[in-house]
C-alpha cells in the first residue's frame, strides 16, 4: 500500500518534470533578452509589434466565428440524431471523427481544389471568401471536439421528455432548441467553445496554405527569425490555452445541473 503510493508519486514526478521542465526553461529563456539581467523585454517587443496585434485579433475573430458557426451546425445535428434518427448515430460519429484521421494538409488541399479561383465556387478569389473558407475549415477541425462535447451534454439531460413537454405546451422546434435545450447544455457548449478557441488560436497549416494573416503563421515567422520573442510567444500561447481550460472547468462546475432525481 505504502510502496505503491511512493511508486505513484515517482511516476507523477517524472511526468511533471517531463511537462514542466521545458516550460520553465522556455520561460527562463524568454526573460534573457537583455544581457546579464532578467526582464520582460521580449514580451514588450512582442506586444509592441503591430503584426502581433493584427494576427492575434484576426485569429480571435476567426475563433469566435468558428464557435458560432460550429454550434449552429452541431447542436441541431446532435439533437436531431439523438431524438429522431438514432440509427444515423454511427454514421454521424464517424463523420465527426474524420478530421482527426485526415491530416490538415490533406483537408486544405482538398479545399483548394474545390474552391480555387477557377472553380464553380471561387471562394479564394477574395480575401473575405478566403477568410470564410478558413473559418469553415476550422469548423471541420473543431468538429470532433465540439460534437462530442455537445453530445455528452445532451446525454446528461432527458432530451426526449423535455422536448415532448415543451411540444405539448405549444413550442416549435426553434423555441425548444433555444429556450430549453441550449440553456441546459450550456456547460458542454462552453467547454466545446473553449476547446475550439484553443485549436483555432494556434492553428498553422490552414492559415499558412490559404495565406491568411493568422496568429499561427506569425508564430512560425517569428520563430524562424528571432531568438527570444518566440519563447515569450510560446509562454503566452500556453497561458491562453490554460485560461481556456480553466474557463472550461469553471463552466462545467458553475452550472451544476441536477439530474432528474426520483424522490
Amino acid at each position: 500500500m505504502r510502496e505503491s503510493r511512493i511508486g505513484a508519486w515517482i511516476a507523477f514526478g517524472i511526468g511533471a518534470l517531463y511537462f514542466i521542465l521545458p516550460l520553465i526553461a522556455t520561460f527562463e529563456f524568454s526573460l534573457r533578452m537583455k544581457r546579464g539581467e532578467y526582464s520582460f523585454e521580449a514580451y514588450r517587443v512582442v506586444f509592441a509589434d503591430p503584426r502581433f496585434q493584427a494576427s492575434f485579433t484576426y485569429s480571435v475573430g476567426q475563433a469566435l466565428a468558428t464557435i458560432f458557426v460550429g454550434i449552429a451546425l452541431v447542436v441541431p445535428t446532435a439533437y436531431w440524431v439523438r431524438l429522431r434518427a438514432p440509427q444515423f448515430r454511427p454514421i454521424v460519429e464517424f463523420i465527426t471523427l474524420l478530421p482527426l484521421v485526415i491530416p490538415a494538409i490533406v483537408i486544405v488541399f482538398g479545399y483548394l481544389r474545390i474552391f480555387n479561383s477557377s472553380s464553380l465556387i471561387p471562394l479564394t478569389d477574395t480575401n473575405l471568401g478566403t477568410d470564410a473558407l478558413l473559418m469553415f475549415g476550422y469548423v471541420t477541425l473543431a468538429l470532433p471536439y465540439l460534437y462530442r462535447a455537445v453530445d455528452t451534454g445532451l446525454q446528461a439531460i432527458d432530451v426526449r421528455t423535455l422536448t415532448e413537454s415543451a411540444e405539448s405546451l405549444g413550442a416549435n422546434a426553434f423555441t425548444i432548441l433555444t429556450r430549453v435545450i441550449l440553456p441546459n447544455i450550456r456547460p458542454a457548449l462552453l467547454s466545446g467553445a473553449f476547446l475550439t478557441f484553443a485549436i483555432v488560436i494556434g492553428e498553422f497549416t490552414f492559415a499558412a496554405l490559404l495565406n491568411r494573416p493568422a496568429f499561427g503563421p506569425y508564430l512560425q515567422l517569428l520563430g524562424a527569425n528571432r531568438a527570444y520573442e518566440p519563447s515569450a510567444l510560446a509562454i503566452m500561447a500556453f497561458l491562453v490555452t490554460w485560461a481556456c481550460m480553466g474557463l472550461m472547468q469553471l463552466a462545467s462546475r458553475g452550472l451544476r445541473l441536477p439530474t432528474t432525481d426520483t424522490r
Binding site: 421528455t161 413537454s165 411540444e167 405539448s168 405546451l169 416549435n172 430549453v180 450550456r186 441536477p258 432528474t260
Partner: peptide, 20 residues
C-alpha cells in the same frame, strides 16, 4: 395534428420540468 396544435396538457413520470 402536431402536439403543439392539440391543446392537450401532459404530465410525465420523469417530471420533465425545465432545469434551467
Amino acid at each position: 395534428k402536431r402536439p403543439a396544435e392539440r391543446n392537450v396538457g401532459m404530465v410525465f413520470q420523469a417530471y420533465a420540468l425545465f432545469p434551467n
